[in-house]
């Protein structure tokens, strides 16, 4: 799914990385715990949905080469955080949707999590 499609589904605003909005992602993960993100399967073709807006979210995305971050529940990071995202080439979106609804909307539109549901269970 293109990041632009995610933006459309979640009626999101682009806060950083506008020029990369047509990049494809194959999976998503939703978490406020960065250690869980680092411990998981998240990698370059991923988008992260999170309610955390501190610089460590961008750093975490950087470490696993994540393409995009969606800040949920209308949260807006500081200009320094967005600057860091631009520097690292990460697309940042912001949606008013809460985490669960945003995840559900993307999932029902075909954007799955890492691995199969069977593995996750």
């Amino acid at each position: 799914m293109k990041i632009s499609k995610i933006k459309e589904i979640l009626t999101a605003d682009t806060l950083a990385g506008e020029e990369r909005i047509d990049t494809e992602v194959i999976c998503a993960c939703g978490s406020d715990l960065m250690s869980d993100v680092l411990a998981g399967e998240a990698k370059e073709e991923f988008v992260l949905l999170t309610g955390l807006v501190n610089p460590q979210v961008i750093r975490t995305a950087e470490m696993v080469d994540m393409r995009a971050i969606v800040f949920v529940r209308g949260k807006t990071p500081t200009p320094e955080v967005l600057e860091l995202a631009e520097e690292k080439g990460i697309v940042v979106l912001s949606t008013k949707c809460p985490l669960y609804i945003a995840s559900g909307l993307l999932y029902t539109n075909g954007l799955r999590g890492a691995g199969s549901v069977e593995t996750a269970l």
Binding site: S35, A39, L52, Q56, T60
Partner: peptide, 15 residues
């Protein structure tokens, strides 16, 4: 509150 400190750091390093 910053997304760390859940006792996952060292196990993650080991992994």
């Amino acid at each position: 509150d910053l997304g760390f400190g859940a006792g996952m750091g060292l196990p993650n390093i080991q992994k």
